[in-house]
Design a protein around this nucleic acid. Structure first.
Length: 410
DNA sequence: AATCCACAGGAAGCCCGGGAAC
DNA sequence: GTTCCCGGGCTTCCTGTGGATT
């Protein structure tokens, strides 16, 4: 067979290849389906609490608990948009503001964000916090209206900036003449309440709604519902969805993971020009999602953390067992010198190490070696070779690949 | 039992860039 | 321009500690 016959019409074959997807959008996190399976009770519960808003009464503040991917965000947004539209019909102005506290994680920025949602212009820094608060307050108080504020991942906010902001927001009603404010706090952390001041605790959690993780069967229902819209009929093998559901159920019933898994499986199958999505595609997808998230986490690390990680990689390559903070700091400082970068203090490096730990890139446990002190033992938790390349790819670290760490101190 | 290592990790405060107001 | 505020990265200084060694 010559070249021409084997490749002629290659584009035609690619173009005529049947796509498996009808709409990939349906499988994304941002997509809100018309129907939220297995969350009817929670929706009813929230609706009951918030319905007082439509009777022009003050509504209780709500605290929502549940692990990631249990539908907290999607349900709250759904219920709020329902509330807004019903309010419109009844001629009762209802406004909702959604804030993701993982991104907006200081008191100033929460207030700034809120003020902007209500059409005020507030610089992202510069004003005294009090002024931003006043701006927001007068902005919503211009007319009689109900304002529902969703604070998603509120535990992050409290962890980082304390509970002042929540305290202020829960008390805001006493300063308002016309408008009313209710707060919905969403938290992944079940112990979150313990970090709050007692007064804040009681006012924020007047009502508590708990979202239980989905089990494998429920995840299957969710996936089936979406797959029907996302894929062509018959494009998905019988066992694909149960397998995605099973994998995700193992990770505390995370529906987002399940959807990702299904979407990536489909993408892999499509790229392979397979006629249907099969079980093996799911397994490949699982591996790929895991690998991608690690690479992404490492790639977006700040330079100092990359050098630090590089030090750990080098020490691991030299098969040092029981790498300690001291070893890492030693190698790290010499790497910095070679790369011409500032050397941070050990205290700071210790914090960066904790961050790497939090990201799951390394695992560190504090051990006591008796007379020889207390330190962390650090293990790399990611595949050495692949990650080394990702770190070396950082332009500022070029030229460090020939670096030899010192022999182990005794 | 006392000592003491090698850090962990909290607290406070510095410095910087970004921005507003005067 | 000066003076104020905010947030984030960082340093300085500090107290705390599990257990092998003395």
């Amino acid at each position: 067979m010559d070249f021409k016959t084997s490749f002629s019409g290659i584009f035609e074959s690619l173009m005529t290849r049947e796509p498996l997807f009808l709409s990939k959008e349906v499988l994304r996190h941002s997509y809100t389906p018309d129907e939220l399976p297995h969350r009817h009770n929670e929706i009813r519960q929230l609706a009951m609490i918030l319905s007082s808003v439509l009777r022009n009464e003050e509504s209780s503040n709500i605290l929502i608990y549940g692990k990631s991917g249990t539908g907290k965000t999607i349900v709250s947004r759904f219920i709020c948009s329902e509330l807004e539209s019903t309010g419109q019909k009844l001629n009762i102005p209802v406004k909702t503001a959604y804030i993701n506290c993982e991104i907006t994680d200081t008191q100033y920025r929460v207030l700034q964000n809120l003020a902007e949602t209500f059409g005020e212009r507030v610089p992202f820094t510069g004003w005294p916090t009090d002024k931003v608060y006043r701006t927001f307050l007068s902005s919503i108080d211009q007319q009689k209206q109900c304002v529902v504020i969703i604070l998603d991942e509120v535990d992050r906010l409290v962890q980082k900036s304390g509970d002042d902001i929540i305290y202020n927001l829960t008390r805001i009603n006493s300063e308002l003449k016309h408008a009313r404010v209710s707060i919905i706090g969403i938290s992944n952390d079940l112990k979150f309440k313990d970090y709050l001041d007692a007064r804040v605790q009681s006012s924020l959690s007047e009502e508590v709604v708990v979202f239980k993780p989905y089990d494998a069967r429920q995840l299957e229902d969710i996936l089936n519902q979406r797959a029907e819209l996302a894929f062509k009929p018959g494009a998905v093998d019988e066992y694909v969805i149960p397998l995605c559901a099973a994998f995700a159920a193992r990770e505390h019933g995370d529906a987002r993971k399940a959807l990702d898994l299904l979407r990536v499986s489909g993408e892999i199958a499509e790229r392979e020009s397979a006629t249907r999505v099969q079980e093996r595609h799911v397994r490949m997808a699982k591996d790929r999602i895991e690998a991608d998230s690690i690479v992404e986490a490492v790639r977006t690390l700040p330079t100092q953390s990359k050098i630090l990680l590089y030090a750990i990689i080098l020490l691991t390559e030299q098969k040092h067992r029981n790498i300690t903070t001291g070893d890492v700091y030693d190698t790290y400082s010499r790497l910095c010198k070679k790369a011409g970068l500032d050397i941070l203090t050990q205290r700071r490096v210790s914090d960066l190490l904790s961050e790497l730990d939090l990201l799951g890139i390394v695992n560190s446990t504090v051990v006591s070696k008796g007379r020889y002190g207390r330190t962390r033992q650090i293990h790399l938790m990611v595949p050495l070779v692949g990650i080394r390349l990702v770190v070396e790819d950082d332009i500022r670290l070029k030229g460090l690949s020939t670096f030899q760490p010192a022999q182990r101190r005794l």
